[in-house]
């Protein structure tokens, strides 16, 4: 029994090195297979599960990722950002927003996602306010893209205000 446990442990370590290599090389299908091998031996390996979810996102298999997260309640609440992102990409914007709003202390990435969801939901006032907050509080390589997104929000805000004036 303990011999088997020892063997499994070794196997898991070697599958993790496969997983790491395939993931870094962008071979997501093979990475998923390695993650599955780990999860077959040890269903509670959170890192393998998380890796698998992210591979599915990289492969744009959002519905499959959502199914996987829904079927694994024990990991689900640790991957709220990933789940909300999948729902966003699956065009389930209301559900996605609901999950983001459950996150306490929104971190930057969740704010970024929330702003995008608000944009898709045509809640431009809120999206603009959130983008202003993000722009003020970040210093990364995506400043230009973020300003582009804020401009897109402003286009619609502007349209709505013009419409109001005409009506």
């Amino acid at each position: 029994m303990s011999e088997k446990a020892e063997r499994d442990k070794k196997a898991i370590t070697s599958y993790y090195s496969e997983l790491n290599r395939f993931g870094q090389n962008g071979e997501y299908e093979r990475a998923i297979k390695a993650a599955n091998k780990i999860l077959n031996l040890a269903p509670h390996e959170f890192l393998a599960f998380q890796y698998k979810v992210i591979c599915l996102i990289e492969l744009s298999k959002f519905d499959e990722a959502i199914r996987l997260l829904n079927g694994n309640a024990q990991f689900d609440n640790q991957l709220t950002f990933e789940k909300a992102y999948c729902l966003y990409r699956a065009n389930k914007h209301d559900e996605s927003l609901k999950i983001v709003d459950q996150i306490e202390d929104l971190d930057l990435r969740s704010k970024e996602l929330k702003a995008q969801i608000l944009y898709r939901l045509e809640r431009y006032e809120e999206a603009a306010a959130l983008y202003r907050d993000i722009v003020k509080n970040t210093d990364d390589d995506y400043e230009d893209e973020r300003h582009t997104n804020l401009s897109a929000v402003m286009v619609y805000l502007d349209n709505e205000q013009t419409k109001d004036r005409i009506e």
């Binding site: 890796y51 996102i57 990435r109 996602l113 973020r146 897109a152």
Partner: peptide, 22 residues
Amino acid sequence: KPLFYDLALNFVEFPDLTEKLE
């Protein structure tokens, strides 16, 4: 249609597996 980037995708990142590697 104005240009709109999916910036959140850039924050979807693999976890660090160092602790699991031999």
